[in-house]
Design a protein around this nucleic acid. Structure first.
Lengths: 117, 117
DNA sequence: TTGACATGCAGGTAAATACCTGCATATTGT
DNA sequence: ACAATATGCAGGTATTTACCTGCATGTCAA
């Protein structure tokens, strides 16, 4: 696979992660699993006041973004968080802007002053 | 203002930030500003292959999320990144899951082993 | 085995989203 | 002043999204 294709893939995954995190119900699901990892679908549903099927769809989106994985045990499905994509978001988005943080006000100041002498 | 209201407000802002970051065009806008802070609307448009008005709408969403601020200079509008909300996302979402990272595999293992003796 | 339980699958709808075009307004340089 | 430039505002549409209901399948326990 070429480098550009790899970059495209990374971009697609990143997009899935951001889209997955864009919904409050899905963020709540991650929160619930953070409190107690490995909960079943029904356990998660109890906190979400929406139909079970809706929750299932949200979970599918989180799973496609690789933010959680599931394991079947008999007739139930256990859900586990995967923190790796969140860390990737941090590396790509937070650290990058963090580094420039101190420089920003200076940029603004000099730019405005420079243009109107 | 009560504590619960403050929490609600924080939640709304958080939601705006995540929704703002959910679109690839908006993430690209932040990237462009990271390369060169203080660009005008037209400068930003040149990299986005969509109508100027669409870009304006994306910028409005980023601005509502407090991810960037604007300054008018004559007939142009300069755009500046604000990294603070991104850092808030980091504190709320990345660090939290980061801490549990090592515990997760252990949780999974013990849970599965415990239930099927 | 059979009834209760946990989840999967297939549509259907209302609201939100991401675009667009067309026209209006304000600023600058000649 | 006036033509070019930079941006603002008002709709309009196609797609996506977040829900739902109804029914099917698989698993456990008495």
């Amino acid at each position: 696979m070429k480098d550009e294709d790899l970059a495209k893939d990374a971009g697609k995954n990143e997009d899935k992660v951001f889209k997955a995190l864009a919904d409050p119900s899905r963020r709540k699901l991650l929160d619930l699993l953070c409190e107690e990892n490995g909960q079943t679908l029904n356990q998660l549903c109890e906190h979400l006041n929406m139909a079970r099927q809706s929750t299932t769809q949200h979970i599918a989106i989180l799973e496609a973004a690789n933010l959680l994985s599931t394991v079947r045990r008999g007739r139930e499905k256990l859900h586990f968080i995967n923190p790796v994509p969140l860390h990737a978001v941090y590396e790509r988005w937070v650290r990058k802007f963090e580094q420039q943080r101190l420089g920003l006000l200076h940029d603004l100041k000099t730019r405005l002053e420079g243009e109107e002498p």
